[in-house]
């Protein structure tokens, strides 16, 4: 089985972001960047499938600026076999990313495709589902457990009411949730070894996909700040405030 996963480089989840005053977006200059946390989970899952002898080859692909190389190297150091970079300086809409991923998939022919359930910058939670539809493949979103059983997979999904267990025929798209696994750290020898692993570039022109989509971000603004309230000194004072000031309890 061949496993391919998609990786996005995002502002680190623990950075406090700053909205640009002119409404053009979020400040990205000199900000710490990381692999989208859900994609780290996809990396870990692919590596485990390889370690279990279920995956023959693992590949990671990212569409983004040259700097993404750094994150792809991290994925290689974590145990992924090959990396593909589709260089692209501008931010593409979800549909365009899905089209690029589809084009790569038609060339590479993986049996299992792993994506994060959402990118924590735009919080879209779309691309895996769009991609599955474009390919007419089954989708198992928000996976917290994945078992490969011959030519199908059994996936436990985290849904609003609890859990849902699906069976899907391969090839399929799976999107990862946080509890699928706990990602490992890259060891120093593996970081060195990763420098020898293949990192190939595929140009957007080569793939020849349509990048336009009919969605446009007009502006980005900061939300209304919630003003800090007060400290109370005792349970009695708290209950008094909740009853008589906020009037939220009887």
């Amino acid at each position: 089985m061949k496993v391919l996963l998609a990786l996005k480089r995002v502002i680190d989840p623990y950075v406090k972001i700053r909205v640009r005053a002119d409404g053009s977006g979020v400040e990205t200059a000199n900000v710490k960047m990381s692999i989208n946390p859900f994609d780290e989970i996809a990396i870990e899952e692919a590596v485990r499938l390889k370690e279990q002898g279920l995956a023959r080859l693992t590949q990671v692909v990212s569409i983004g600026p040259e700097a993404v190389q750094e994150n792809l190297r991290t994925a290689l150091a974590l145990g992924i076999d090959e990396a593909l970079l589709v260089p692209c300086e501008q931010t593409l809409p979800a549909l365009a990313i899905a089209r690029v991923l589809k084009a790569i998939i038609l060339i590479e022919k993986p049996d299992l495709v792993l994506l994060g359930k959402q990118a924590i910058d735009d919080d879209n939670n779309q691309i895996g589902q769009i991609l599955a539809a474009l390919l007419d493949w089954p989708q198992c979103t928000f996976a917290s457990q994945l078992k490969v059983q011959g030519d199908s997979i059994e996936v436990t999904r985290e849904v609003d009411g609890g859990l849902e267990i699906l069976s899907a025929k391969l090839p399929a798209v799976v999107t990862t949730d946080l509890r699928l696994n706990t990602p490992r750290y890259a060891s120093l020898p593996n970081i060195m070894k990763a420098k020898q692993k293949p990192l190939t570039r595929v140009s957007l022109e080569e793939l020849g996909v349509c990048l336009t989509a009919n969605i446009e971000t007009l502006s980005v603004s900061a939300p209304k700040e919630r003003k800090a309230g007060i400290r109370v000194d005792s349970v009695d004072e708290l209950l008094d405030k909740l009853r008589h000031e906020a009037k939220v309890i009887e």
């Binding site: 972001i17 979020v26 924590i120 919080d123 969605i215 446009e216 971000t217 980005v220 900061a222 939300p223």
Partner: peptide, 14 residues
């Protein structure tokens, strides 16, 4: 909302 609600995006669908 984007960035865990730390920014709000106004988007247009055509």
């Amino acid at each position: 909302p984007i960035y865990a609600g730390n920014a709000l995006a106004t988007v247009r669908l055509k």
